[in-house]
Simulated assay, not measured.
Amino acid sequence: MGLFNALAGNLQKVDENQLQQQYGAFLFDGEQISSGYQLIRDAVLFTNIRIIFIDRQGTTGAKMRIKTIHLDSVVDVEAETAGAFADDSEINITYLADVYQRKSGEERLETVKLEFPRKFDISPIYRYLGQLALSNRARINGK
């Protein structure tokens, strides 16, 4: 859970070309990075297929743990904008943790929180994820 603890800090936007150089080897065929954010050594990448969490471990950061949330499993998103003082902005993403459980009617939901600096405009990310969640809910519920 080191990555999720690290996400309690503030993510900073990183150029997609830089992210492609660093993490391109871990992308699936046809997958493209649309945006990415970094906190010290850890990173969060948004691609056309999934959200990728990179957790660099150890003192050198050479060891990495890669976690994926597939975009088709996102079912809800919440946003909290920063206040007037030292508050940060945050986005909470709720997703189906095990899509195979859905068939038995025992869905397991998990949430991950992303925190951004106070002056960072989270509205494009929120709108993107919200529209995605809306589409996924319609598909899941057969509407």
Rank of each mutant, 00 (worst) to 15 (best):
L7P: 02
G9R: 00
Q12C: 11
Q12K: 15
Q12M: 05
K13C: 05
V14D: 09
V14W: 06
D15W: 06
D15Q: 03
Q18P: 04
Q20K: 15
Q21W: 11
Q21V: 10
Q21N: 10
Q22P: 07
G24P: 07
A25W: 14
F26I: 07
D29G: 14
G30I: 07
G30A: 11
I33K: 03
I33M: 08
S34F: 01
S35V: 11
G36S: 03
Y37H: 11
Y37L: 04
Q38C: 09
Q38P: 06
Q38E: 03
L39V: 09
L39Q: 14
I40R: 12
I40W: 15
R41K: 05
R41N: 12
A43R: 10
A43E: 00
L45F: 12
F46L: 13
F46I: 05
T47H: 02
I49R: 11
R50V: 08
I51T: 06
I52V: 15
I52W: 00
F53D: 02
D55E: 12
D55I: 01
R56M: 08
R56S: 11
Q57L: 13
Q57T: 01
G58F: 13
G58I: 15
T59I: 13
T59N: 07
T59R: 01
A62H: 05
A62R: 09
I66S: 09
I66T: 01
I66N: 06
T68V: 12
I69L: 03
I69C: 12
H70Q: 14
H70I: 07
L71W: 06
S73W: 10
V74K: 04
V75W: 02
D76G: 15
V77D: 04
V77P: 00
E78C: 06
E80F: 05
T81P: 06
T81D: 00
A82D: 00
A82I: 06
G83E: 06
G83F: 10
A84Y: 06
A84L: 14
D87K: 12
D88T: 04
D88V: 08
S89A: 07
E90R: 15
E90T: 10
E90Y: 11
I91N: 06
N92E: 07
I93E: 01
I93K: 03
I93C: 07
T94G: 01
Y95F: 09
Y95D: 01
L96E: 00
L96T: 08
L96Q: 01
A97W: 04
Y100I: 03
Y100C: 09
Q101E: 11
Q101M: 14
R102P: 00
G105Q: 10
E106G: 03
E106Q: 01
E106T: 13
E107F: 09
R108G: 02
R108S: 00
R108T: 03
L109I: 13
E110S: 00
T111A: 14
V112L: 12
K113A: 13
K113T: 09
K113G: 07
E115L: 00
E115R: 02
F116C: 03
F116E: 08
P117N: 12
R118Y: 08
K119P: 05
F120G: 00
D121K: 12
I122Q: 05
I125W: 01
I125Q: 02
Y126M: 04
R127W: 01
Y128F: 11
L129W: 08
L132Y: 03
A133H: 02
A133V: 15
L134N: 09
L134R: 08
L134Q: 13
L134V: 11
N136Q: 14
R137W: 14
A138G: 08
A138Q: 13
